[in-house]
Each structure stands twice: as structure tokens, then as C-alpha cells.
Computed example of a mutant assay.
Amino acid sequence: MPICKEIQINDSCQLLIWNTTESLDELLEKVHLTSNELAKLNSFGSQSRKIEFASTRCLVQFCLGEHVQIQNNEHGKPYLINSDLNISISHTKSYVGILLGKEYNIALDIEYLSDRVHRIANRFLSKKEIQCIDDKNKTIHLYQHWCAKECLIKMYGKKDVHLTKELKINTFSSSDSSFTGEVCRSDFSETYAFKYLLFDNHLLVYACKKSQ
């Protein structure tokens, strides 16, 4: 299972991306799954969903050992058993990515670049955000906003958040090396800095913020 990208972001946070070309049977030969994990795997009707599930656990065990397991809290946010690291996970097409960090709040999102984003932009962007999109680099700029808002949801940790009213991306150019965004709720208000990576017609956006 070759890791196609491995980036040490800071003293604690590490980003790993794997291009999954293996079949489900090949993945199951590489990964150790508990009986509960096997039951969950078999509950998925989609073969692609099964591959996502197995490949994520394969990548985690490759990095941290087969004793480390992924669980999800009541809001669906993943966390690790038998490790003190935080984790964020993203899948798209044949890629799986994990972001690991100790004493950092972390979030990761990967998206395949396509024209679809133009049709749904008004679902996740405010009028002000749409007005600030770069015309010359529109697709990438839209996906930078989309991925960043997905990261904000992961940072907040709950899915009952309004994409245009409670998640805000501060104005930036698509060529900027970093940008910022905010979760604006009465029960939660935080600002995060985002970095991004372009590869193989995919965009990856991540955020790491030291825990207080």
C-alpha cells in the first residue's frame, strides 16, 4: 500500500494520502478488523463504501499499528482507540486521507475537481462569498471554499450547522497560500487557518489549531 503523499505539518500533525488501487479482498488481507468492524463493513450495500471503510483502517494501522481502532462519537466524528492522537478522515474517488495530531484540533477534506460545484455554489456560499470568487480560477476557488466549510463542520463536531449563515470564509484570492474561516454560532465561535494542496485533479484542504 504505497503512501502517495506524507507531509509533516508541524511538530505533532501529520498528513497521509493513499491512492487505493487494491480490491476489497486485497485490503482485507492487509487489515485487522474486530468483529464489530467486520459487522459494520458487511452492513454497507455499496462496494465502494466497503473499500473506503477498509482502506481507512488499513492506513491507520499501517501508521500506528493494528491495535489502534477508529470509532465514531454520537455525532459521527471519528476518534482513535488505543491512541492519544486526534484524527480527521476524508475520501474521494480512489484517495483516502488521514490527518493525525496530538494536542491539536484538526480537520481535513479532499474533493475531486469537477464542474458540479458551479451548480451547487449557492447552497454552501453566502452572497458575499459568491461575489468574491475569482472568475479566472473559479472552479478551484469554489472548491477551496467548499473544502474549508467541510473542515469547519468537522472542527465544530456537529452537523446541525447552517452552511451560509453560520460558516464564514474570509475573503481571499485563489492563489493565496493560506486563508481563514470561522464558525459563528451562539454556542461555538472559533477562527481557523487553512492550507491546501492540489494533486491529480483533486483539492485537499486542512486546518490544525492548538488545543486550548
Rank of each mutant, 00 (worst) to 15 (best):
M1P: 01
D11P: 00
S12W: 00
C13G: 05
N19V: 00
N19Q: 13
N19I: 00
N19L: 02
T20L: 01
L24W: 07
D25R: 10
E26I: 11
L27C: 12
L28Q: 04
E29Y: 01
E29N: 14
V31S: 02
H32R: 06
L33P: 01
N36C: 08
E37H: 03
A39Y: 08
K40G: 03
K40P: 02
K40N: 09
L41C: 03
S43Y: 05
S46D: 11
S46I: 09
S48A: 13
S48T: 14
R49Y: 02
K50C: 10
K50T: 12
L59A: 12
L59N: 11
Q61W: 05
H67A: 12
I70N: 06
N73M: 08
K77D: 07
S83E: 07
S83Q: 05
D84R: 04
I89D: 01
S90K: 06
K93L: 08
G97I: 13
G97L: 09
L100H: 08
D109M: 08
E111R: 03
L113Q: 01
S114K: 12
D115M: 06
V117T: 00
H118T: 13
R119Q: 14
I120K: 06
N122R: 12
R123H: 11
F124W: 11
L125I: 10
S126D: 11
K127N: 09
Q131R: 14
C132Y: 08
I133H: 03
D135C: 07
K136F: 11
T139M: 14
T139W: 01
I140L: 15
H141E: 09
Y143T: 09
C147K: 05
C147I: 11
E150V: 06
E150G: 06
C151T: 04
C151N: 15
L152I: 12
M155A: 15
G157V: 12
K159M: 11
K159Y: 06
T164M: 04
K165W: 00
K168C: 08
N170M: 12
T171F: 07
S173A: 10
S175W: 02
S175G: 02
S178P: 00
S178L: 07
F179Q: 03
T180M: 11
E182Q: 15
S186M: 08
F188M: 05
E190M: 09
A193E: 15
D200M: 06
H202Y: 12
H202L: 02
L204Q: 04
C208L: 06
K209S: 15
K209R: 14
